[in-house]
Amino acid sequence: MSQLQQVENVKIRKAEARGHANYGWLDTHHTFSFAYYFDPEYMGFRSLRVINEDTVTPGDGFGTHGHRDMEIITYVLDGALEHKDTIGEGGVLYRGDIQHITAGTGIMHSEYNHSKSENVHFLQIWIQPNSKGLKPTYNQHSFEVEKNSGKLNLVVAKDGRNSAIKVNQDVDLFASVLKDGDSIDYAFENNRYGWIQVARGEVDIEVDNNDKFSLKAGDGVALSEIKKVSISTTSNGEILLFDLA
Rank of each mutant, 00 (worst) to 15 (best):
K135D: 14
T57K: 04
T234A: 01
E89S: 04
S163Y: 14
G24M: 01
N52C: 04
F242L: 01
Y23F: 11
S2N: 06
A199G: 06
L178H: 13
F38I: 11
P136F: 14
N22H: 10
M108H: 03
A222V: 09
K84H: 12
T234W: 14
Y75N: 01
S47P: 15
I72N: 07
T57E: 12
E82D: 12
E16G: 01
Y138H: 01
L178S: 00
F34P: 04
E189M: 09
Q5I: 04
Y75F: 13
S149R: 06
D54I: 00
Q124D: 12
G79N: 02
F32Y: 10
G24R: 07
W25L: 03
S183L: 10
D170S: 10
H30M: 00
F174C: 02
E41A: 01
Y193R: 03
N22V: 09
K84A: 06
Y138T: 02
V221H: 10
I73R: 12
A245Q: 09
T102C: 06
A17Q: 05
V177M: 10
D27W: 06
D85G: 08
R49Y: 15
V10Q: 06
I87M: 12
N52W: 14
W126Y: 15
G88I: 11
I125V: 11
Q5F: 05
Y138S: 01
L223S: 04
D39K: 00
R200C: 05
Y23T: 00
E118K: 03
A103S: 15
V56R: 02
N148W: 13
S33C: 04
G88K: 13
M43A: 07
D219C: 01
N162M: 12
H30K: 02
K135P: 06
E202P: 07
E206W: 07
H141G: 03
D39W: 13
Q3E: 10
N9V: 06
T234E: 14
G237T: 03
A157D: 15
D159W: 15
G90W: 14
N113W: 08
A17Y: 13
S131T: 15
N236F: 12
A187G: 07
I184E: 12
L77F: 12
G19P: 02
F32H: 00
I87Q: 05
E111R: 02
L77V: 02
G91V: 01
